[in-house]
Amino acid sequence: MNKGDKIFVAGHRGLMGSAIVRSLQKKGYTNIITKTSSELDLREQQQVRDFFIAEKPQFIFLAAAKVGGIYANNTYPADFIYDNMAIQNNVIHEAYRNNVDKLLFLGSSCIYPKLSPQPIKEEYLLTGLLETTNEAYAIAKIAGIKLCQYYQKQYGCRFISAMPTNLYGPGDNYNLQNSHVLPALIRKFHEAKVNNHPSVTIWGSGTPRREFLYSDDAADACIFLMEDYEGADFFNIGVGVDNTIAELSLIIKEIVGFTGELVFDTSKPDGTPRKLLSVDKIKGLGWHSSVSLKEGIRLAYNDFVNKYDYYVHKESSLI
């Protein structure tokens, strides 16, 4: 990519998309196109077709998605599979029809089987059953990876994919019903501290292990792949280290300054027992993460406190 090339960041108001925009701007890219979902509904084929004809983007970061945590995925599976497949199908196909120079599709680590060997290598895709609570979302993301690979195979399109691990950072979703575990815990601990609650309740047993990547680190990896990688492979993006939910809770508790007790609600689902990505492949190209978990949580918490009124009213939605 050249600094003046027209770059469309789909999903620029979401966690990943906003990080990509920030990183592109820091690197000196000046011609970034963004559209809100009210301006351009990526689920609607004709709207997407008209957008490509009018704007003619040269590069695309496809970060738009319907996203949510265990509760949202398990409660609205039809919405998750339909919305995400519609977005992917429309954008990827129109990128092909309009000769876009290169596209990067953002997937998710939930594409892998529930009981994958750890750490999870890219080659483990489609080798076992998915976690049932987010199966709909995972199937949509797998379809997106395959779309990119097949359009490259059949038409020679420079379409690639990246699979980030659990992300957090500025612009996250802090809705307690629909968010992922780390932002939900930040909000829970903060509100418990402010309201002098004696304890914080955490879903599940606290034993599942998860890996967390600061969103600006993930954005840096995506731009790295767009600038430097040519091929048909997809890449895991992560830090290569995981923590139990209990350990994560203690870190957030310390950073927020909450002094009460932790209560684990074992009636709530744990989800996948462990999900640690192997990042050897992208490290082999020369990229690695730079923000530690504690540093990233401090940055995310400061952002949350500064924008508290906005975040607590933000709904989980198409971003």
Rank of each mutant, 00 (worst) to 15 (best):
Q46R: 10
D309E: 15
L62P: 04
D270P: 02
I142D: 08
V194P: 10
Q45V: 09
M16F: 13
D50P: 02
D233T: 09
S199I: 01
K141A: 15
F264Y: 15
A19G: 13
A184N: 13
N134C: 14
I255M: 04
G240W: 03
G286F: 01
K268R: 14
E55F: 02
R210V: 10
E254G: 09
A136T: 12
K141V: 14
G260A: 09
D242S: 15
V305F: 01
I237D: 08
I142V: 15
L147C: 14
A192D: 01
G144H: 08
F59G: 06
K26D: 15
T30W: 04
V48E: 12
N196W: 05
V181I: 15
I297G: 09
M226T: 10
L248V: 14
K6L: 05
V91E: 09
A136Q: 13
L318M: 14
Q25D: 10
I92C: 08
F304E: 02
R210T: 05
R187W: 08
A136F: 14
I120P: 04
T207A: 07
V256C: 05
A143I: 05
N84K: 08
N175Y: 11
S205I: 01
A138R: 02
L176M: 01
H313I: 12
K188L: 04
I111Y: 01
N178C: 10
F224R: 09
G171T: 02
F189W: 02
S249D: 01
K153C: 03
P164F: 00
A64I: 06
G286L: 02
G69M: 02
V312P: 03
S316H: 02
V67S: 15
N173Q: 03
F304K: 03
Y71P: 06
K275N: 15
P117L: 10
R298T: 11
D303K: 00
V241E: 15
Y137F: 15
F8N: 01
I145M: 10
T36V: 07
V181C: 11
S199A: 08
T127W: 03
S267A: 13
F189P: 02
D228F: 13
Q154K: 12
L299K: 12
I255Y: 03
T244G: 05
V67H: 14
I319F: 15
L167A: 01
L125K: 08
L176V: 02
L15E: 04
A86N: 13
I282N: 11
G286R: 03
V239T: 12
T259E: 13
S23D: 07
L40W: 13
A72M: 09
T30P: 00
R22F: 13
W287N: 01
A218H: 08
Q149K: 14
G4K: 14
K66G: 13
G14V: 04
C222D: 05
K114L: 12
R298I: 03
D265M: 04
T165R: 03
L24C: 07
G238W: 11
A86L: 12
P57K: 06
A95Y: 00
Y150F: 14
L277F: 05
P117T: 09
S161I: 06
G238F: 12
D83N: 12
K6D: 02
T201M: 07
I111D: 00
Q88Y: 00
